[in-house]
Amino acid sequence: MPQPIPTNPKATEERLDEIRKAAADKAPPVGQTRGPAKPPPQIRGRESYYGLPVLKAPLWTWEVPLYFFIGGIAGVSAVIAFASQMFTSDPALPRAALWIAIVGATICPVLLISDLGRPERFLAMLRVAKIQSPMSVGVWTLVAFSGCVFLALVGNELTFRGHANPLVIGIRWAGELTGALTGLLLAAYTGVLIGATANPIWSHNRRAIPPHFLASAVGGSAGVLELVGFLTPATQLLGIVAAVAETLLGVHFELSRLPVNAPLHRGKSAWAFRVAGTLAGPVALLLRLLSDSAAGRRTAAVCFLIGSLLSRYAWIWAGVASAKDTEALFQIQRKA
């Protein structure tokens, strides 16, 4: 026999009065109070409330850093497609870059939707466009990017298969130019997404994170192209530039010893960050400078890609650690 489900009718005004009266009646008169068995530690000076965190930690799971990584590669691949189409006569490289961009643009929404608390409601993202919300800007950038790259790919494939006419070539150029511009935005906005938050380490580094993500996307995109066989001087140059940028940014973050940056210097996030920075920075750079062989360049590409992916996770982990660091939050706010 199933038990009837107890109903909990919505509280009434009488019930709220009852709660108030019960609370007032139970309050013992002055002098007769009994504290906890052991008194709590006293809070002095500017101490926090029992060391508990003020802020909530980011709850993004593994999908979001992976999205940052893939979105970055897809975005810069579209830039490479445009630049190589514009300045070289080899049709194979822009074609491969566009395919990388479209594959990335297909994976990205899957990752983003599966990270939502209510994935079936993902369309709610498209009911408004808010310039002041980096996430809204990002969603619309991704939508625009997918459309532009799709156009470019259609135009490019038709040209490649011998159906070139002014309309097809026009579509290809329009798609490639808009794909490059939205691709840049797609690779860069994720830095703003985490930089313009209440999280202390993210907001403190809001000027450095977007270039870090972009450098990582440039090297990652060049690396993927090299791994699929395009060992061109241009990809080598982009790989070197990205590794130099990663090295400089790594040194910058290592030397920024403010308390707010502690998650980059202590704990899990710090070691992930350092390993990532070393792989994408000096290791990839030295491999490229010391060896011009295909094997050397491919090793450099793999090192950079691993470092680039790990650094996105390290930034999220650093944000989780930073949200718990109440003393650093107070210190940075008192100083400002």
Binding site: P53, V54, L55, K56, P58, L59, W60, D115, L116, G117, R118, P119, R121, F122, A124, M125, R127, S133, M135, L193, I194, T197, A198, N199, W202, G319, A323
Partner: peptide
């Protein structure tokens, strides 16, 4: 309307 993206969680300066 909320679809649980979690962005408000990291955007509240009061936690």
């Amino acid at each position: 309307v909320c679809n649980g993206c979690g962005y408000c969680v990291v955007s509240c300066p009061f936690g």
